[in-house]
């Protein structure tokens, strides 16, 4: 496999705040690669540097063999970008939006019409090409942006939070189009997301990014495996006490306490669960409720960062929990 993107100690600082801290990674040709992390983890900053929108504070990266700092025009020609925020001209029709893009990226005039037809078909918007964009729904605009990002035959397509703010059905559609795209167009796709499901279902490899650094990078299945074969979730009236004891006496696997729940990742719950119950009983703690599940990306994220991807939680709360956990770990 040949690398299409290589980053070398890429770093971005805003004043005293380090948004991206010395990230070095390699992404291979044809991969679908996810950057998974909470809001503010540095995903968009990292992406912006690769797209030559932001200048790195130090370090650099090669995309399609071009240096992002010195050869930005060639880099820009090699990549397609779908931004997190909407970026279509709503006073124009979708065909006009695509024509503008084709002209800005020097798509040969003779191929333009055919190519526009192709990409519109790919995202299922063929019938609406001459409608003004303000008549489009949010999901349709997103699809048009994806079509636009593809128009100039990029080698790499960046999707920054491609399904943010969309309803579940539109999200499923976008996922289908991304999968489709991978089959039909020979390109590498890099997406950022804070939906674990999205990363899990679409991507070959996932980099978990937190506070500007990559805390884990592997295929979804390996990441899940590392977390353990099973997750035992225990609820008790003394959850916190039990979790502290389990960590202290190193009873089983990786223990984390969150939202009044103890999550224990173990190799095989069938064998290890009885021991945990016995330990709790001996400690005089009653277990109210138990579930045993296979790990999902959320568990992976908690495993590596000690906090949950924000799920209806304020960042402050997650931050506080992470702090509590760090304090306990000492």
């Amino acid at each position: 496999m040949k690398p299409i993107i290589e980053t070398f100690n890429l770093k971005k600082q805003f004043g005293p705040y380090t948004a991206v801290n010395n990230i070095s990674l390699t992404i291979n040709k044809g991969e679908v690669f996810a950057l998974l992390g909470p809001n503010g983890a540095g995903k968009t900053t990292f992406l912006s540097m690769l797209c030559t929108i932001l200048r790195p504070t130090s370090g650099t990266a090669l995309i399609n063999g071009f240096d992002i700092s010195r050869e930005s025009a060639q880099v820009r020609r090699s990549i397609g970008i779908v931004f997190q925020d909407p970026s279509v001209d709503t006073d124009m029709t979708s065909r006009e939006n695509l024509q503008m893009h084709a002209n800005l990226y020097s798509v040969p005039v003779s191929e333009q019409e055919e190519r526009i037809k192709q990409v519109l078909e790919l995202v299922g918007l063929s019938g609406r090409a001459d409608d003004f964009m303000y008549t489009y729904s949010g999901g349709m605009r997103r699809r048009l942006e994806i079509a636009r990002g593809l128009l100039h035959y990029p080698r790499v397509l960046f999707l920054d939070e491609p399904t943010i703010g969309l309803d579940p059905r539109s999200r499923e559609h976008i996922w289908d189009y991304i999968r489709n795209l991978r089959k039909r167009e020979d390109m590498t796709i890099i997406l950022t997301t804070h939906y674990m499901e999205e990363a899990d279902r679409l991507c070959d490899r996932i980099a978990i990014i937190d506070q500007g650094t990559i805390v884990a990078l592997d295929t979804p299945s390996v990441l899940k495996q590392e977390v353990g074969g099973d997750i035992i979730t225990i609820r008790s009236d003394k959850s916190q006490v039990l979790s502290d004891l389990l960590i202290q006496d190193n009873i089983a696997g990786h223990v984390s306490y969150h939202n009044d729940e103890i999550k224990i990742s173990v190799q095989d719950a069938n064998f290890q669960f009885p021991g945990i119950v016995e330990y709790a009983v001996n400690a005089g703690i009653r277990i109210d409720h138990v579930t045993i599940t296979k790990p999902d990306m959320n568990d992976v994220f908690i495993h590596y960062t000690g906090k949950e991807l924000y799920h209806g939680e304020t960042p402050e709360r997650t931050g506080r929990i992470a702090m509590m956990k760090r304090r306990r770990a000492r």
């Binding site: 030559t52 929108i53 025009a73 820009r76 020609r77 970008i81 001209d89 893009h101 990226y105």
Partner: peptide, 9 residues
Amino acid sequence: FLKEILVSP
């Protein structure tokens, strides 16, 4: 839309 223009080559 300005972003779309500014990231073009």
